[in-house]
Design a protein around this nucleic acid. Structure first.
Length: 939
RNA sequence: GGGCGAAUAGCUCAGUUGGUUAGAGCGCCUGCCUUACACGCAGGAAGUCGGGGGUUCGAGUCCCUCUUCGCCCACCA
């Protein structure tokens, strides 16, 4: 039986189908220990891609780590659930639709709200699943039977429940204030959706004549067009220059009306001229000042960002700018001010201007009525959760960002003047008295619950993030807390996301989790970096510098893509990929896949398909040193992979039984997926393939001792099986394909659900394994000498091994070849050297002068191989003594701390336990060091 | 204006309580189509760990400072 010499990436989709058919990704709520089952649940909710999205590398960066984690948990025999789904993405999707309509020269207003929503639904229905289908191509092992959608009837119910509950609790209110407005999207935005961008603009100084005097007040502004809506100028009451003017008036140029001079701390004497114009309707701060001084708020810019007066503007907008765009008007106003001599000066000014995060239009502050969520009460538990360790954020540096945002949280504007989204569940009744004006309802209202009269639903929709923040709850059945999935899988475990949505989404989910369920929605937040190109620019559609993951899959396979992403993914580090050379970028993954495949081929060819003896059943004495060595290396690899991934979940009780926290020791450990990849790669390639496989070729070959051949075969299968298990989360396809071919494979089983390997209990004394290291050292030394002397590869040589001896103030540190010659070790080692270095090993008591001379004069006939590991004793002794001194110092302080009753009684139990454990480790280390010093330095 | 991060081989990156000779992949050089694999094998060259100062027996790792790049936050018109 033989296989093609490459793994065919096209086979990946067939494997995926087989997993689906086997139900491998389906989680079973009944099995969760939380509702009486026998498996711990491990849950991840997928950050839902926008329904209109097509797969890009950002998705892969998001999904692949999640897939690694969920596959790992699944193999750890957890009841692993990964909930997939999509986001209706209100403003983003609406923009897409508006662009589509614009191709017919129409706007959404031309076709009307109902038709617009209908078309969007249709569009989403047609394309909505596409992104999820694409995810399958990269191996995403989500439970598709639980696919969710933020705008589905079920999740919409959660949205209404959340709104109603917050309203009833007084945490949602209607506010009349200046908000961020996008004049292109024609909607208000939250603070987070209005992003700052540094810009160089102009700072204009304008003179306002003081009424009844020749004096002028010079104000500074970056937005002169808003002066039309000025209702006052403010000076700082402590400012000696101006304080006598408070109470007087100035004449507003162009508009030609009188406005008061007021005193307010808001005016900063240090900035500009120390005088600031007050425009309540078009600036957030001015609005607050206006409120304090009871000033009107005339509006002179309309929703499209054009100069247009609305109510109470009293003819402030002169004819020459009426209808103009705000930026056109700005120029005209400046020109007019110049003409009438009111413009004092113009200077360059660097400032941050807010832009719409969806269309990049400069945001306009706009006075209007919106619904807000009072955030401060929600922020408190979210902060406390992090402090108590119920939640950890990796990498740690994002904790500060999270804390800072929550500590300075501002109320959340959740109204959007859009058509695509959850309609705000508020109805207004005209006929009732004002107290009954607003009706919030969980169900559709057709008549006023108070007077039975007609009601009108709020025209606005909710911020799309108002449904997103419920995602871990709503996808599991909330608000029905009796829902099976909710009971079985909430709280979830890990949330993987990009840090760019830490405020939009991650923090708000935590707030919602605590507020609505009293528990954090997950215990671990894992932030990954973003994809950048070779010039370190963010990959983006507009720059055209992206890598299409599907191209990579088609060319090299999903495993190659996953390998490159995972092995290159430092914790939270941006990923630099070259879109112009995807061969170079993804070849390492492809090559690795091929290597795995070929190890499989070798195994099949040389070891056949006959049933294989389990390693555990092989008597220890039948194992050769190389067998013990590779089994030991496997144990080490398993231990290192476990350490790289860390604990699945925290287990230390926080307060009640169902709440847990991370200990300090666990908190920042694990989740190093690149370490998993590297460790497993090193084992399977550099140890299993390069050494073990080469070393046993002779034993497997025909004519070898049947019994011993079976030992080698069994160990090989076992070690490779272990490697495939460790690697499966990273490269699921090729590992499954190869695993299915192993002689140990049981028909109908899949690696995807096979058990994660465990290291043997007793790996304490790998002495015989260590003896194999001598062989590795010898082979390395001989190969090196061969290469240096250009000995032809096929040429067989003799090699003499010189015993370690004292000379020139140095001693051999490793050199115990001779101590193991008596029990057969030398025979094993010699055989391996024979095979791997093509050299016949001869041990000599001392270097024969003839041999040495021969080595120089007649290379290839015989070589003298001094063992490596020469060490400068003086240097090494000084280092060891230093380490010992320092360790003893630290031990002393540790001992005194543990002797301190206050520390032992007051410090958290796990801290004390940790210190005790450390004490043990350090003592052992001290002994080790003392022994070393004793042997090496003689006391 | 505040805060954070990064700087390690030509490139992309590891380097977890300070401790043997700082690692990997790609690239480069030499030799090999050795019966699993040239998407491979063997060997090799290559790093004053951004600069300076400090703590220590010992610093890529801790402290201070400077330089360069990047990110986040912020109501200074």
């Amino acid at each position: 039986m033989s296989l093609p010499d490459r793994f065919d990436p096209a086979a990946e989709s067939k494997l995926y189908e087989r997993w689906l058919d086997a139900g491998s990704f389906r989680a079973d709520a009944d099995r969760s220990t939380r509702i009486g089952g026998d498996r711990e649940p491990f849950t991840i909710v997928m950050p839902p891609p926008n329904v209109t999205a097509i797969l890009h590398l950002g998705h892969a960066l998001d999904e692949v780590p999640q897939d690694v984690l969920i596959r790992w948990a699944r193999m750890k025999q957890q009841e692993a659930l990964w909930v997939p789904g999509t986001d209706h993405a209100g403003i983003a999707t609406q923009n897409v639709m508006e662009k589509a309509i614009a191709k017919d020269g129409k706007t959404r207003f031309d076709i009307g709200r109902e038709e617009f929503v209908r078309r969007t639904e249709k569009f989403v229905g047609e394309t909505g699943g596409a992104i999820l289908r694409q995810l399958r191509a990269i191996g995403v092992s989500a439970d598709w039977t639980r696919t969710a959608y933020t705008f589905s009837p079920e999740l919409s119910r959660a949205v209404r429940e959340a709104f109603a509950r917050l309203y009833e609790e007084g945490l949602i209110y209607r506010g009349h204030r200046v908000i961020h407005w996008c004049p292109r999207c024609l909607t208000s935005l939250s603070d987070e959706e209005a992003e700052f961008e540094e810009e160089t603009g102009a700072l204009y100084q304008i003179a306002y004549p003081v009424t009844g005097s020749n004096a002028k007040l010079v104000i500074a502004t970056t937005r002169p067009e808003t002066m039309l809506a000025d209702v006052a100028v403010a000076v700082n009451p402590k400012d000696k220059r101006y304080r006598d003017l408070v109470g007087k008036t100035v004449r507003l140029p162009i508009v030609d009306i009188e406005i008061p001079i007021i005193g307010d701390d808001y005016a900063d004497p240090e900035f500009g001229t120390g005088v600031v114009k007050i425009t309540p309707a078009h600036d957030m701060n001015d609005f607050e000042v206006g409120k304090r001084h009871n000033l009107p708020a005339p509006i002179v810019i309309n929703e499209h960002g054009e100069m247009e007066e609305e109510a109470d503007a009293d003819g402030r907008v002169p004819a020459f700018v009426r209808g103009d765009d705000r930026f056109v008007a700005r120029k005209k106003i400046v020109k007019r001010l110049q003409e009438i001599g009111a413009l004092v000066k113009t200077e360059q000014h660097q400032h941050a201007v807010r832009h719409c995060y969806r269309c990049d239009t400069v945001v306009e502050p706009r006075l209007s009525d919106q619904w807000f969520v009072r955030m401060e009460p929600l922020a408190k538990p979210a902060l406390e959760g992090l402090r108590a360790g119920a939640i950890r954020i990796l990498p740690q540096r994002w904790e500060g960002v999270y804390v800072n945002w929550l500590e300075n949280i501002r109320d959340w504007n959740i109204s959007r003047q859009l058509w695509w989204g959850h309609r705000i569940p508020v109805w207004y009744c005209k006929d009732c008295d004002p107290p009954y004006d607003v009706h919030v309802s969980r169900t559709e209202l057709t008549e006023c619950p108070h007077c039975g009269g007609p009601v009108r639903q709020d025209e606005d929709v909710l911020d799309t993030w108002f449904s997103s923040w419920l995602w871990p709850l709503s996808t599991l059945g909330w608000p029905d807390e009796k829902a099976e999935d909710f009971r079985a899988f909430y709280p979830t475990d890990v949330l993987v996301s990009g840090p760019d949505i830490i405020f939009f989404w991650v923090s708000r989910m935590i707030m919602a989790g605590y507020h609505f369920t009293g528990r954090a929605p997950y215990h671990t937040v894992l932030f990954h970096g973003i994809a950048r190109d070779a010039q370190h620019r963010k990959m983006s559609k507009s720059l055209g510098n992206g890598v299409d993951p599907l191209d990579v899959v088609r060319l090299y396979g999903a495993d190659a893509l996953r390998w490159t992403l995972v092995s290159g993914m430092g914790l939270g580090v941006d990923m630099i990929l070259d879109p112009d050379d995807i061969e170079k970028t993804f070849a390492p993954g492809r090559n690795f896949v091929t290597k795995l495949w070929n190890i499989g081929r070798f195994l099949l060819e040389k070891a056949g398909t006959a049933p294989v003896t389990p390693v555990a059943e092989i008597p220890r004495e039948k194992l050769q040193r190389v067998d013990e060595w590779i089994l030991w290396r496997l144990d080490v690899a398993i231990a290192e992979c476990d350490a790289a991934l860390g604990p699945l979940r925290p287990t230390t009780p926080l307060d009640t039984a169902d709440r847990v926290r991370w200990t300090e020791e666990e908190r920042y450990s694990g989740m190093r997926l690149n370490d998993l990849a590297e460790t497993a790669r090193r084992f399977v390639w550099n140890e299993l393939a390069d050494w073990y496989l080469e070393a046993i070729k002779g034993r497997l070959a025909e004519g070898g001792d049947g019994d011993d051949a079976e030992v080698a075969r069994a160990v090989l299968v076992h070690a490779f099986d272990g490697a495939l298990r460790l690697l499966h989360p990273v490269v699921p396809f090729v590992t499954e394909a190869v695993w299915q071919q192993l002689p140990s494979h049981v028909e109908g089983t899949y690696l995807v659900t096979a058990e994660w390997p465990e290291k043997r209990e007793d790996i304490g004394s790998p002495a015989r394994a260590q003896e194999f290291e001598v062989a590795r050292e010898l082979v390395g030394a001989i190969r090196q000498i061969r290469a240096e002397n250009s000995v032809p590869p096929g040429k067989h040589i003799d090699a003499f091994v010189i015993p370690p001896n004292e000379n020139g103030g140095t001693r051999m540190r490793v050199g115990d070849v001779f101590s193991v010659t008596g029990d057969g070790a030398f025979g094993e080692i010699a055989a391996i050297v024979e095979r791997l270095a093509r050299a016949t090993l001869t041990v000599v008591d001392k270097a024969p002068a003839a041999a040495a001379a021969h080595a120089v004069t007649n290379v290839g006939a015989s070589l003298v191989v001094p063992l490596a590991g020469l060490v400068d004793v003086d240097k090494e002794c000084s280092r060891l003594r230093g380490e010992l001194t320092s360790l003893e110092k630290q031990l002393e302080s540790l001992e005194s701390r543990l002797a301190n009753e206050k520390f032992v009684s007051k410090a958290p139990a796990d801290v004390v336990a940790g210190e005790r454990k450390k004490l043990g480790e350090w003592n052992a280390r001290r002994q080790q060091l003392r022994d070393k010093v004793q042997t090496l330095c003689g006391g």
